[in-house]
Computed example of a mutant assay.
Amino acid sequence: MCAKIINYYACANSSKGFVNYLDDNINYLDRLFILKGGPATGKSTLMKRLGKEWYNRGFDVEYIHSPCDNSSVDGIILPTLGIGVVDGTFPHVVEPRAPGAIEEYINLGTAWDSKKLIPLKDDILKINKQIALCYESAYKLFSQALTVHDEWEKIYIANIDFNKMNEITQETINTIVGSNYQDKQAGVKNRFFGGATPKGSVDFVMDLTAHISNRYFIKGRPGSGKSTMLKRIAQSAKDRGFDVEIYHCGFDPDSLDMVIIRELSTAVFDSTSPHEYFPSKYTDRVIDIYSYAIKPGTDEEFKTQLEDITSRYKGIIREGTHYLSKAKDLNDDLENIYIDAIDYDIIDKINHDLKLKIDDYFFNMA
């Protein structure tokens, strides 16, 4: 069987601020290398190179992408080996379970020449302050957008037939889980399939579900019960011993956008804008909540009000995205300062040593 690559996010720039589920995705690993060191130390480049190398060796690789930089990753996982390498710098807080036995810190900051950086201290502090203010502004705007989104939801909540919604949810659970059962404790991983980035909304829905046999595309509107349906499906699978990947909404982490049950080769996801997709496999199925459980004519009855809400919501999201993009530009300025103070021979030595440590661990396992 060919090796697989999957891409997802463990963190999000959301309406609730910066949300971090990194621990949830690495707490089962037997070996974890935590990279320390700030801008321009090549953490992302190192991880991507390691991922490519092990993929070429025939091993599955998980890339945990950065919501703050579209070209960077926050970590890689080699699930078959139980090994991970993650960015352990702020805001990626990693709680070690057994330092030295499981976690090992790799400090790329030893490659800095502090003599070159000390004279630039004020510039560095100024840029860091500006970056923090950009994120603060973005999160404040996303919070405002959530308030507008609540107006959107109220329209459909007031026009939904909850009995029909319960009915279609239970039918879906019966179809997916049925009488299947596994005599084990279910594993749960909380993640994001996408979210707000400096380049706007990005998602990996099709990537994550590419090898899934049974895909359910949920169509509906805000407030039509998509997230509630997903929560019930996830709980049912967990109760029956199946491992579950729970993908939260990058905008509102309290809501769910997708559930994957790989042991049943099943994915159920919210397939509406900004992550709208359509069936492409003969086994794909659509669950049209709007047609099934929403009062007919709701879109038409509230057309003017919905257009106003949509316009306001998109405008605020655009403004918030602008601040994420500005933060990325400022971080690029910061990296340019640090590049001139880094000894890349030291970085290459650290990279080589880490590669050997992973190789040694692998050969000791074999």
Rank of each mutant, 00 (worst) to 15 (best):
Ile5Asp: 09
Asn7Glu: 14
Ser15Gln: 09
Gly17Ile: 07
Asn20Glu: 03
Tyr21Cys: 06
Tyr21His: 14
Leu22Arg: 01
Asn25Gly: 09
Asn25Lys: 05
Ile26Gln: 01
Leu32Phe: 12
Gly42Glu: 10
Met47Leu: 11
Lys48Glu: 07
Lys48Val: 04
Lys48Gly: 02
Trp54Cys: 02
Trp54Val: 03
Gly58Val: 05
Gly58Gln: 06
Glu62Cys: 08
Cys68Tyr: 00
Asp69Gln: 01
Asp69Gly: 03
Asn70Arg: 03
Asn70Tyr: 12
Asn70Gln: 13
Ile76Cys: 02
Ile77Tyr: 00
Ile77Glu: 00
Pro79Ile: 06
Val86Ile: 05
Pro91Arg: 00
His92Phe: 06
Val94Ser: 00
Arg97Phe: 11
Arg97Cys: 10
Ala101Ser: 13
Ala101Ile: 14
Glu103Tyr: 01
Ile106Val: 14
Ile106Ser: 00
Gly109Asp: 10
Gly109Lys: 00
Leu120Arg: 12
Asp123Ala: 12
Leu133Arg: 08
Leu133Asp: 14
Ser137His: 08
Ile155Trp: 02
Ile160Cys: 06
Met165Ile: 13
Asn166Glu: 14
Gln170Pro: 03
Gln170Trp: 09
Ile173Ala: 08
Ile176Tyr: 00
Asn180Gly: 12
Lys184His: 12
Thr197Lys: 01
Asp203Cys: 09
Val205Ile: 13
Leu208Ser: 07
Leu208Arg: 06
His211Asp: 15
Ile212Leu: 09
Arg215Ser: 11
Tyr216Gly: 00
Tyr216Glu: 05
Phe217Gly: 00
Gly225Glu: 05
Gly225His: 04
Thr228Ala: 15
Thr228Gln: 09
Met229Val: 10
Met229Asn: 02
Met229Gln: 11
Leu230Tyr: 03
Ala234Pro: 06
Asp239Ala: 14
Phe242His: 04
Phe242Trp: 09
Asp243Gly: 07
Glu245Phe: 08
Tyr247Asn: 02
His248Ile: 02
Pro253Ala: 05
Ser255Thr: 08
Leu256Thr: 04
Met258Glu: 05
Thr266Leu: 05
Val268Thr: 09
Ser271Ile: 01
Ser271Asn: 05
Thr272Asp: 01
His275Val: 07
Ser280Arg: 11
Ser280Met: 11
Ser280Gly: 07
Lys281Thr: 13
Tyr282Asp: 14
Tyr282Gly: 02
Arg285Pro: 04
Val286Asp: 11
Tyr290Thr: 09
Ser291Glu: 15
Lys295Leu: 13
Gly297Tyr: 13
Asp299Ile: 04
Thr304Gln: 14
Thr304Asn: 15
Thr304Ala: 15
Leu306Arg: 03
Ile309Tyr: 12
Arg312Gly: 09
Lys314Val: 07
Glu319Arg: 11
Thr321His: 06
His322Ser: 07
Leu324Glu: 04
Lys326Phe: 11
Asn331Pro: 09
Asp333Gly: 07
Ile339Thr: 15
Ile339Gln: 15
Ala341Trp: 06
His352Thr: 15
Asp353Arg: 12
Leu356Glu: 15
Leu356Ala: 14
Tyr361Ala: 07
Phe362Ala: 06
